[in-house]
């Protein structure tokens, strides 16, 4: 069981490394389990996942086999102004769910596993609402 876990982490690490090199977009992946009490706070590369753990767990509660994009956004200071972000992402058929965390400047997007998540595309979607996406972390659940 332990071997399988570490092998999974290792493979994901390799994938994340390759993905980062290819896109140069600060995109990383981590394996996120839904064990009770498990807090998704640290990425496989040791970077801190700056998302509210409770909010994240609530967001992914009951969800399996999805990608979660955690997008850092600059300029997202107002609920009324952030409405367009939700509307823009919901036009994408591979997006199942979206959550906006104003206090941390994060947008959580639940993608289907088959979705191709490109940071450039996400940056354009955020920019179309007048804000700037500065970072992307992709988590597989």
């Amino acid at each position: 069981m332990k071997k399988g876990y570490f092998l999974t982490i290792f493979l994901i690490s390799l994938f994340a490394w390759a993905d980062d090199d290819h896109h140069k977009s600060h995109t990383m992946e981590m394996e996120a389990h839904s064990h009770e009490g498990h807090k998704h706070e640290v990425m496989v590369d040791g970077r801190k996942l700056e998302v509210d753990p409770d909010r994240f767990d609530k967001f992914v509660d009951g969800q399996k086999n999805f990608h979660v994009a955690v997008i850092s956004v600059n300029g997202m200071v107002c609920d009324f102004c952030a409405r367009g972000i939700e509307k823009t992402f919901k036009k994408d058929k591979s997006v199942q769910k979206i959550d906006v965390d104003l206090s941390r400047g994060k947008v959580l997007v639940l993608y289907s596993l088959s979705a191709k998540i490109e940071f450039e595309d996400i940056k354009q979607k955020i920019l179309s609402n007048g804000q700037n996406a500065t970072d992307l972390q992709v988590i597989s659940i």
Partner: peptide, 12 residues
């Protein structure tokens, strides 16, 4: 027309 916008983590 929006002439200029500056977005930061905590302000716009």
């Amino acid at each position: 027309y929006l002439l200029n916008r500056k977005n930061t983590k905590n302000s716009q």
